[in-house]
Structure formats: C-alpha cells, structure tokens
C-alpha cells in the first residue's frame, strides 16, 4: 500500500514537471512578445535575445505618434465594429438556432443541410463577389460594410447554440403554450432567459471576430486607411518597408489587444466548452 502511494507520488511529481515544461514552452512566445514590446532598439532580427535596454515608448508612441499608424483610431474602429457585429450576429444566430431547434417546418432539414454544405466552401473564395455586392449598394470602405460582412452570414454558425437549445426541455414550452403564450413570447421571455450561457458565448465569439480578421477588412477597406481595424493596421506594420522600425511597436499593439481578449476568453472558457460539446458537459 505504502509502495503504491510512493509510486503515485513519483508519477504526480513527474506529471507536474512535464506540465511545468509544457507551460514554459507555451508561454515562451508570449513572454517574448511582451519582452519585444518593451525593447528600445528597433528591428525584427537581432543577434541577441534579451533587449539591451527597455522602454515604455513603444506603448506611448502607439497613441501619440499617429502620423503613419493611427492606432487609437483603429482601436476605436474595431471596438465600434465589434460591438455592432456582436449585436447583429447574436440576434441572427439566436433566431436561426431557435427556429431550427424548436420549430418544425417543411424547410427545416433542407436548410440545415444547405448550411452544412455551404460551410464546406473555403470562405474567402467569395470575398471578391461580396465586395462587389457591397459596392453595388455603395457601401464599400465603410465600417458599416464591415459589420455587414462579419454578421451577414453569421446565421450559418447556428450549430452550437442550436445544440444548447436542444437541451432545454420541451415541456417548458408546452406549459407556456397552455398559458396562452405564442411562440414569439416563448422565444424572448422563456427560452432566451434560460440560455444565458449560450447568449454570452455567442456575443463574445462574434465580438472577438473583428479583432482577429485582417483579410476581409483589407478587401473591404482597400486604401481607406482611416477605417482600418487594429488587426489590419498591425499587419501593415510588419510589411517589408515598415518591419524594421515598427516591429517593437507592433508587439506593443498586439499586447494591448491580447490583454482584453485573454480576459474575455478566460472568463468564457466554460461556455466555449459546453457550446462545442453540445451542452453535454460540465466544464
């Protein structure tokens, strides 16, 4: 018995050390990013590892030196787009998933199949067409267009919240219906309040999208530099002619968006897990 306990203790010690090493490996690039963001010397490739001197300038200049890279403006743009996208796509996704989960109608199965098929096409194949559709409405190069692009097809991502709605017992709906509620009332007054985790999950996921994308935004915004989002702006800092001077500032800008997103993600990880696994687990 005692022997087994020692064995157990050795095993645990071993696992602890593996976890330690792995954490080190995983956190190292991020640590390096933070380190660069405080480095005083410019340049992306250096023949040494630790910065020779440290400074806050990279952070300060992001907000003060806006002649080439208007980081504060882009940050604000992204925030506006993210909030609007979160609002619009959450409503679209929840409506779609509610309909596909709770209502029964002839087109239900075909619609789900179509969504499944559409999901298999590589997304940015359609970019050029989307651009010209927006252009025929005179919407290109605006933040509004960006919101439309990010949330327009959002309904396709109904899958996770539908999984959640599927787990809410139908009996609740039925008893409400006996009380004379129509389906509209049931959706807004009963189902949604019961689905807080998935609502939060949907909001956060769509909120995070605009912070990450740099492809769609570059197609939509083209040369309209004032309407760039943070991701595209940071990406531009790494272009061939800018990388030498702006690499450290890029790191600072990246740290600044990584912090809020990390906090959001850590907060919502359990919703994420239950979302993906169809609400069948306790995170």
């Amino acid at each position: 018995m005692k022997n087994m306990r020692t064995q157990e203790r050795i095993a645990n010690g071993f696992i602890h050390s593996i976890l330690g090493i792995l954490s080190f490996v995983w956190i190292l690039p991020i640590f390096w990013l933070v380190l660069i963001s405080f480095r005083k010397e410019p340049g992306s490739y250096t023949s040494y590892i630790l910065p020779k001197s440290y400074t806050f300038d990279n952070y300060i200049k992001l907000f003060t030196d806006t002649s080439l890279f208007n980081y504060p403006r882009w940050f604000l743009n992204t925030l506006i787009v993210a909030i609007c996208t979160a609002a619009v796509s959450t409503i679209l996704v929840l409506m779609t998933s509610y309909a596909l989960s709770r209502l029964r109608f002839k087109m239900r199965k075909p619609m789900m199949n179509i969504a499944l098929i559409l999901g298999m096409f590589p997304g940015f194949m359609a970019m050029i067409a989307i651009y010209h559709i927006l252009k025929s409405f005179g919407l290109t190069q605006t933040l509004f267009a960006l919101v439309l692009v990010y949330s327009g097809g959002a309904a396709m991502g109904y899958y996770i919240s539908k999984g959640f709605f599927d787990t809410i017992p139908k009996a609740i709906d039925e008893s409400a219906m006996l009380d004379g509620a129509n389906k509209n009332t049931i959706f807004w007054k009963i189902t949604l309040p019961l689905s807080k985790p998935i609502v939060i999950y949907t909001i956060l996921m769509s909120f995070m999208g605009p912070w990450m994308d740099f492809i769609f935004v570059s197609v939509i915004m083209k040369d309209n530099y004032q309407n760039y989002t943070v991701a595209l702006g940071l990406y531009r800092m790494l272009s061939r002619e800018n990388i030498f001077m702006y690499f450290t500032r890029f790191a600072a800008g990246a740290v600044l968006i990584a912090i809020p997103i990390s906090i959001l993600f850590i907060y919502m990880q359990k919703f994420y897990v239950s979302g993906i696994t169809g609400g069948s687990t306790k995170g």
Binding site: P42, G43, Y45, T46, S47, I243, F244
Partner: peptide, 14 residues
C-alpha cells in the same frame, strides 16, 4: 542571407 530588416539590424555588427 535574409531580408531588409535583417540587413538593417545587423550591418555594422555581424
């Protein structure tokens, strides 16, 4: 070999 950024970062040293 390398790119512009590498040249600028290391000329004069290596």
């Amino acid at each position: 070999t390398g790119d512009d950024a590498y040249l600028k970062g290391n000329i004069g040293t290596t």
